Measured scan of single mutants.
Amino acid sequence: MGSVRTNRYSIVSSEEDGMKLATMAVANGFGNGKSKVHTRQQCRSRFVKKDGHCNVQFINVGEKGQRYLADIFTTCVDIRWRWMLVIFCLAFVLSWLFFGCVFWLIALLHGDLDTDYKDDDDKSKVSKACVSEVNSFTAAFLFSIETQTTIGYGFRCVTDECPIAVFMVVFQSIVGCIIDAFIIGAVMAKMAKPKKRNETLVFSHNAVIAMRDGKLCLMWRVGNLRKSHLVEAHVRAQLLKSRITSEGEYIPLDQIDINVGFDSGIDRIFLVSPITIVHEIDEDSPLYDLSKQDIDNADFEIVVILEGMVEATAMTTQCRSSYLANEILWGHRYEPVLFEEKHYYKVDYSRFHKTYEVPNTPLCSARDLAEKKYILSNANSFCYENEVALTSKEEEEDSENGVPESTSTDSPPGIDLHNQASVPLEPRPLRRESEIGSRR
């Protein structure tokens, strides 16, 4: 089982795998120059863009038009607004034209077009017409509009002379109601789609790998820009990579689940303020055997998904993003964004995407760390350097704002901070800030 798991979770494809794949392509008759073999020097295209759209195009789909027309309502909801407006206008105009032609044909076959009612006051002739005051196609078209929109100006009306005319008036009224219901329903469904809710759900630009509770963890940050909550919010993550099976089958995008606390339930989050999602790199993680150097040379993509129900409509929305291997910062942490004021908490989104480097973060893999092949620094050293990194950030910001350097908390000259780390230190809580992250 261990060997199978290692093969499945191998992220960085070796040169031997690339040569094996190329040999397979030639042997199977696919070596026509169009096949692409992804190596370390040639990274694959992003499968999920940063804005959440999937970078996929469908080609050679059989009976595409028929399949889309069979699900016309979903098609109308998914198309762009400009095409929705075109369909909206065409549906009414074509129905008016169709029934206008029908009423014109009825008048033509009944002989109503030969009668001039402007110079004739004989009401008996008017009563013999199928539709009064309809003696041309324009008049028939206007009567069709008046019937379907129930305008009723009063000059044109159907008589009991022709039952077919009466039937067409009733039929057009029913068709008009159906068109109204369909168009209004599609427009309302399109307006109520929770897709735009994703514009106020954000992911951090970069993911980070750092120590948390004595273990290497992959972390990324999510935030909600609205005050309205995302009900039943939960997160998922998958690692996408290519691999070759033991039988020699090439899988271009193998999807591997990344555990973010599904078993323990901590994948469900209360997204009021930005939260750091934590994936513990343990023996079940696809990143277990990867060191910093392996991450730098790897070719994979981590897709992160945030799902929840919109509070206003109770409709489920899904926000997506992805991180390539070069977008994962090893040995970094996110800057705090949640600050405790006197009577409330304040979230500073200008710090949302910012990170700071944490010294002495192990550069080895989580496996080597678990097997004690890498000796961690003293816990006080880690905490102290973590505090120094934050303090230096604040000093830089104070210097930019014009604060005198004498007010900063610099260490005395001639003292090495790293050498001082081995000395037991008193706890130094942050002056006014605390970061709330997901705790395992």
Rank of each mutant, 00 (worst) to 15 (best):
S3P: 05
V4A: 08
T6V: 08
R8M: 06
Y9R: 13
S10E: 10
I11S: 15
I11H: 07
D17K: 07
M19E: 08
K20L: 03
L21N: 08
L21V: 10
L21P: 06
T23W: 07
N28G: 13
G29L: 04
G31Y: 06
K34N: 14
K36G: 10
H38R: 09
H38F: 07
T39I: 09
R46T: 00
F47Q: 03
V48M: 08
K50A: 07
C54P: 14
N60T: 07
G62V: 07
E63R: 15
E63W: 15
G65T: 12
Q66R: 15
Y68Q: 11
L69C: 14
F73C: 13
V77L: 11
I79Q: 05
W81G: 04
W81E: 03
V86C: 14
I87N: 15
F92K: 09
V93L: 15
V93Q: 01
V93T: 04
F98W: 01
C101Y: 03
V102I: 05
F103P: 00
L105A: 07
I106F: 01
A107I: 03
G111P: 01
D114C: 02
T115H: 06
D121T: 10
D122A: 02
S124F: 06
V126F: 15
V126Q: 07
C130K: 02
V131E: 02
S132V: 03
A139E: 07
A140G: 03
F141K: 00
F143R: 01
S144E: 01
I145L: 04
E146A: 04
T147K: 02
Q148L: 01
T149P: 02
I151Q: 05
G152T: 05
C157L: 11
T159A: 03
C162T: 00
A165K: 02
A165G: 06
F167L: 10
M168W: 05
V169C: 00
V170F: 06
V170L: 09
F171P: 00
F171C: 04
I174T: 04
G176N: 01
C177D: 08
C177N: 05
A181T: 15
F182W: 04
I183S: 13
I183N: 05
I184A: 04
I184V: 12
A189W: 15
K195W: 10
R197G: 10
R197S: 11
N198F: 10
E199L: 09
T200I: 07
L201D: 06
L201A: 12
V202A: 09
V202K: 14
S204P: 08
S204F: 01
A207Y: 00
L216A: 01
L218W: 01
V222M: 06
G223T: 12
R226F: 05
H229I: 05
L230I: 12
L230G: 10
V231H: 12
E232A: 13
E232I: 10
H234C: 10
H234K: 08
H234R: 12
R236D: 03
Q238N: 11
Q238T: 11
L239S: 02
L239Q: 02
L240E: 00
K241C: 08
T245K: 08
S246V: 10
G248D: 14
G248A: 08
E249T: 12
Y250F: 10
D254V: 09
I256W: 12
I256G: 07
D257N: 10
N259P: 09
N259Q: 13
V260T: 06
S264E: 13
S264I: 10
L271A: 04
S273P: 07
P274R: 02
P274Q: 04
I275T: 07
I277A: 06
V278F: 05
H279Q: 01
H279F: 00
H279T: 02
D282T: 12
E283K: 08
S285M: 00
S285D: 01
Y288C: 01
L290T: 07
K292S: 12
Q293W: 08
D294V: 02
N297I: 07
D299T: 07
I302F: 05
V304R: 00
I305N: 09
I305T: 08
G308M: 07
M309A: 12
M309P: 10
V310D: 14
T313H: 09
T316N: 13
C319E: 11
S321W: 11
A325V: 03
I328D: 00
W330H: 02
W330K: 01
H332G: 01
R333Q: 15
P336G: 11
L338G: 03
E340G: 05
E341M: 05
E341S: 07
Y344I: 04
Y344V: 14
K346L: 04
K346W: 04
Y349M: 06
S350A: 11
S350H: 06
R351I: 15
E357A: 08
V358L: 10
V358G: 00
N360H: 14
N360L: 05
T361C: 09
P362S: 01
L363I: 15
L363M: 12
S365N: 02
R367D: 00
R367V: 02
D368P: 02
A370E: 03
E371R: 06
K372W: 04
S377L: 08
N378L: 04
F382R: 02
C383V: 12
S392V: 05
S392K: 10
K393R: 14
K393A: 14
E394A: 09
N401H: 07
N401I: 11
E405Q: 06
S408H: 11
S411Q: 11
D416F: 06
H418E: 14
N419I: 10
Q420V: 11
V423D: 14
P424N: 09
L425V: 09
R428F: 12
P429T: 05
L430R: 13
E433C: 09
E435C: 04
E435K: 03
E435D: 15
E435M: 13
I436W: 13
I436Y: 09
